[in-house]
Design a protein around this nucleic acid. Structure first.
Length: 750
DNA sequence: GAAAAGGTGCTTTTT
DNA sequence: GCACCTTTTC
């Protein structure tokens, strides 16, 4: 744009700063918006969409906007509608996974999948991998299915197929992994299922092998936007490239370096992100996507949003000080014009109960002194397990609260059981779901019978479902088992018949009745079963709501929504009322903001987590997590820690978190007893930069006996096998068995 | 085949 | 300390 951005006037640009305006009206070259925390990046994206529709004659169906969560997508659509009237219906504003499923359902046949394929989440994938490992006769201790499942997920995020994985394998472990990957993939195909990583990877494959498909979507979407770009993985990055298309590339002499994408000029791409808020590297996100955007798209334009509209200068200064300790980072200079505000309050508690009590009392005090209502307060912690003490304390003191995250609705056993029935009815080949419900509720088909059917099916080279139908032919099967299986098959057939004429909610209800699941729970006196029953009713009403929203909706579509749209609505919104205190992990807190924030468990070993302290890269991610936590606060920030914390049953004395030490001390008002401070001063020595906690100064030589559990700086957790005077033999599991000299080994008894 | 006892291992997580 | 998986026992 040649017009200075601050001279632009348009109702949609009102209230935006010059950088934001420029980002909204920019067109042509790919655009990278580097936005600090609280700088209104989502607002820019929303206004940009509205501006495209209102001023640049873009049709809604030409827009594809990718968000990180469904909730963000929903909000973005609503805001666009609010700005320029209802246009969002034809617009694709959704997550990567939703977009891919919609493309794949249409094109599934080209990849050899039925369009009604099942979608496997992480738990399903792990179950399938467990079946594969058992089939391969792998020792679950040496080759844990969970770890294999995670590693296969990594491969897929990197777009590495099993053949490539096999080619690259050099160790026995890697070859076994590649073999398991191959078998896993075969069984997924047999089950007519895709896992979450497949949804992305197979869409990329689809676009790469079928140029006509790629061109179709490139013609459709002329504007592609991605929010939270720092959290994209390699597969998602490639997907965006394929969808946008690449221009022809020539050297200065005019020699062709790379051909352009077929048929059509690349779409306009606009991505938004903050490398400092990348906290998902552990599941494959790579910051490189955002750091090297300009290299990936040479004519890209970058706009920095540095003004923060959320927090006070005190909070921002603290955040800046902490994040600046990270190396390999492009400096940003976040500023706020909201004034210094109150100081950060620090508190050193005796133990975790005292810490929770402090939070509860402080919330009360804030209510009295400043009229803060519980709904304005959030308590963050590093791990889900930490929520318990707060819950107990808040219940005791009568402070209303809500825990966000933890065990989610769709992860509950009974809900998954019901969904498994529906999935089998929608896709009879779905072997993971089928085996899940085989003996649920108990109907006398045990592990033995299941294993026999599996072996029989494998020998006859037929799917498990067919093996089940022909169970009578399986050698050595007890008559009782055969009869039980026959009954089960008959039940499924009956339900399949009914499924044709029933809506999803009716079918769910029917499953609960005819399987006896409802009767079993209702008949039990266990109060837990009562709440299970409630959850199942809730599930039925979820199906009813789906039908209301989609009168033509099929069972497959319902199941798809359930898999893709997890219950993200549980995050309480600021209703004018009192609200409740929000408890959540730091990860869940991303993207949210609260007037008052408590960062708890600020201890080396807790946060940063023990397992991240050895690896500088992981430590940097923890620091970004701290940055995310600090920048959630609008007015008041509390940092607290416990001098003693009982973890896993035994007490541990953790030194102060290095992140707290990184906050300039003049910003913090320590609010602990002086005598407690004196006690803690000894432990608050600056922790060494590289070594984990507990190794400073007078470390004691641990006295060990066989069976003791220990942790080693390099090898991690281990078990003492034998002791010999000043030496000990320790088994570190996958790390092998090591003989260590106790006086020197960086070993700690647990 | 199912209940009870025993053992183990233990970030973060959306889709 | 607890949840989850495996082994043992009935």
């Amino acid at each position: 744009m040649s017009i200075p951005a601050d001279s632009l006037t348009h109702p949609l640009l009102d209230g935006l700063n010059p950088q934001q305006r420029e980002a909204v009206v920019h067109h042509g070259s790919p655009l990278l918006i580097v936005a600090g925390a609280g700088s209104g990046k989502t607002r820019v994206l929303t206004h940009r969409i509205a501006y495209l529709l209102a001023e640049r004659d873009v049709r809604p169906q030409e827009i594809l906007a990718i968000t990180f969560t469904n909730k963000a997508a929903k909000e973005m659509k609503e805001r666009v509608d609010k700005l320029i009237g209802p246009r969002s219906a034809a617009m694709w504003v959704m997550t990567f996974h939703s977009a891919c499923v919609r493309i794949l359902r249409r094109e599934a046949a080209r990849l050899g999948f039925p369009s009604g394929f099942s979608i496997y989440d992480q738990a399903d994938s792990q179950r399938l991998m467990a079946m594969v490992c058992r089939e391969m006769d792998l020792d679950p201790k040496r080759y844990p299915p969970r770890s294999f499942s995670a590693q296969v997920s990594n491969f897929k995020n990197e777009l590495v197929d099993y053949e490539t994985a096999a080619d690259r394998a050099s160790t026995h472990m890697e070859r076994t992994l590649a073999e398991a990957y191959k078998n896993y993939q075969r069984r997924l195909t047999e089950a007519g299922a895709m896992d979450f990583d497949d949804l992305i990877m197979l869409t990329v494959t689809l676009l790469q092998i079928f140029p006509d498909v790629a061109e179709h979507y490139r013609r459709r979407w002329r504007h592609v936007m991605v929010d939270e770009y720092q959290d994209t993985n390699h597969a998602q990055y490639t997907l965006i490239r394929e969808l946008v298309g690449t221009p022809e590339l020539r050297t200065a002499d005019g020699d062709l370096v790379r051909e352009g994408s077929s048929g059509i000029a690349p779409a306009e791409l606009c991505v938004v992100g903050d490398a400092d808020q990348s906290i998902y590297a552990f599941r494959g996100a790579t910051i490189r996507n955002i750091l090297e955007f300009e290299r990936d798209y040479p004519d890209a334009r970058t706009i920095l949003l540095e003004q923060n509209y959320r927090s006070t200068q005190t909070i921002l200064s603290a955040a800046n000080a902490v994040i600046s300790r990270n190396e390999s980072r492009k400096p940003k200079n976040l500023w706020s014009d909201q004034g210094a505000g109150p100081k950060i309050v620090g508190y050193v508690a005796d133990d975790e109960h005292d810490e929770a009590m402090f939070v509860a009392q402080e919330v009360d005090k804030l209510a009295d002194d400043e009229g803060v209502v519980p709904g304005q307060v959030a308590v963050f912690y590093r791990t889900n397990a930490a929520s318990r003490v707060f819950e107990e304390t808040f219940i005791r003191t009568g402070l209303p609260y809500k825990v966000v995250g933890g065990v989610r609705f769709y992860e509950r056993k009974e809900v998954r059981d019901l969904l498994a029935y529906l999935r089998v009815l929608a896709n009879p080949n779905d072997v993971v779901s089928l085996r899940r419900i085989l003996n649920v509720p108990k109907r006398g088909i045990g592990d033995r019978a299941e294993a026999m059917v599996e072996a029989f099916a494998a020998r006859e080279r037929v799917p498990f479902a067919e093996g089940l139908r022909r169970a009578g032919e399986a050698p050595g099967m007890a008559t009782r088992s055969v009869n039980a299986i026959k009954e089960f098959v008959a039940l499924l057939d009956e339900l399949t018949l009914k499924a044709e004429s029933m809506s999803p909610s009716e079918l769910a209800q029917e499953v609960l009745v005819s399987t006896g699941y409802r009767a079993e729970l209702a008949g039990s006196g266990d109060p837990q079963d009562e709440s299970r029953l409630e959850n199942l009713d809730e599930m039925v009403s979820v199906a009813s709501e789906f039908e209301e929203a989609n009168p033509e909706g099929t069972l497959v579509e319902f199941l798809e929504q359930v898999s893709l749209v997890a219950d993200a609505d549980q995050i309480p919104v600021g209703d004018g009322g009192q609200g409740v205190v929000t408890l959540m992990t730091l990860h869940t807190a991303k993207g949210l903001e609260f007037p008052v924030v408590f960062l708890t468990g600020m201890e080396d070993g807790v946060f940063p987590h023990m397992r991240s302290m050895g690896e500088p890269k992981e430590l940097e991610e923890e620091r970004r997590l701290a940055y995310v936590g600090i920048t959630r606060a609008e007015r008041r920030l509390y940092v607290s820690r416990a001098a003693v914390r009982s973890s896993w049953g035994s007490p541990s004395f953790n030194p102060a978190s290095r992140f707290v030490a990184e906050i300039p001390s003049d910003l913090v008002d320590w609010r602990s007893d002086p005598k407690k401070n004196a006690w803690t001063a000894a432990t608050r020595r600056e922790p060494s930069r590289t070594a984990p906690a507990g190794r400073k100064g007078g470390r004691q030589i641990p006295s060990l006996k066989p069976g003791d559990r220990v942790t080693h700086d390099q090898y991690g957790l281990g078990t003492v096998v034998s002791c010999d005077g000043d030496k000990a033999k320790v088994d570190f599991g996958s790390g092998g068995e090591k003989t260590l000299v106790l006086a020197y080994a960086p070993l700690e008894k647990l």
